[in-house]
Design a protein around this nucleic acid. Sequence first.
DNA 1: CCCAAGTGCTAACTGGAGCAAGCACTCAGC
DNA 2: GCTGAGTGCTTGCTCCAGTTAGCACTTGGG
Lengths: 148, 148
Amino acid sequence: MATLKVSSLGDYIREQRESAQVSLRQLAKSAGVSNPYLSQIERGIKKPSAEILQQIARGLRISAETLYVHAGILDERHEGGGDVVAAVLADPAIGDRHKRVLVDIYESFRAEHAAKEAVAKKATRSRTRKATGPVATKPHTTTRRTSS
Amino acid sequence: MATLKVSSLGDYIREQRESAQVSLRQLAKSAGVSNPYLSQIERGIKKPSAEILQQIARGLRISAETLYVHAGILDERHEGGGDVVAAVLADPAIGDRHKRVLVDIYESFRAEHAAKEAVAKKATRSRTRKATGPVATKPHTTTRRTSS
DNA sequence: CCCAAGTGCTAACTGGAGCAAGCACTCAGC
DNA sequence: GCTGAGTGCTTGCTCCAGTTAGCACTTGGG
């Protein structure tokens, strides 16, 4: 299972913030987190908890699940509408035990289907995967004042 | 937004562990967390991160999302959590035959759950809720040995 | 009875999440 | 030029997540 992707998460948050045309302090205030901490998150220095991500998502007016995917808390396959697992978990018409059983069956079906897809793909080979690029450089550098 | 529900999460994890008939140490080992920490989580003393929940879910062979719901990381009334049948039919990750099987199983679970609800309603007469204690009753009491 | 292996837990510890105080810098109004 | 308001960041701190060492207890085999 992938480790939590801190630096790409920070880039994404800063992207969303700048796209919404709000400052770091404004987002920090609406999200209810301190602005130095938000700065550290955006720069990939700190790894926020799911609770902090929920608050940031609320401040950005996006779904928390979007940030979860970037943080590695949720797998990308579960994001968005039509998600079977989310639908099952949210369904009040069945109990927890049934939910677990249904999700297990679904996952095994998915694995079976994926295996079949892999076999089918072997017949049509010659595909290359694109490597992901590094993180963006900082917008400006700061200079510390010499002590008086 | 709900705060993270630590004690109900712990109860659920212990429930799942005991249902799977594994000891605390066995689960801790398969999950890759320390057994005292797992004990603290189950007793509601510590609040685990999403990463730890992922590991525990893997050790229990259940989906991490199930634990996320109990931890309050995911909302049970998730926006994507719409109709289960529609989600299954729309899912490209499984084949048509699997879709029909899954829908059939789901419908039978719903019918079973509905029947149980009907029975439970007949038996219920102004029930009073039992107050939950801080921790579950201990199987044994510990006394610290006086230092030599 | 003894002992090894297993159980769940306590206590002390370390590292990191998250914050408050304060910094240098920019910009606009006076 | 000065000043206030805003910006993003640094530093030091507190508190908690998560681990290690070790405890009492149970159980089964020799």
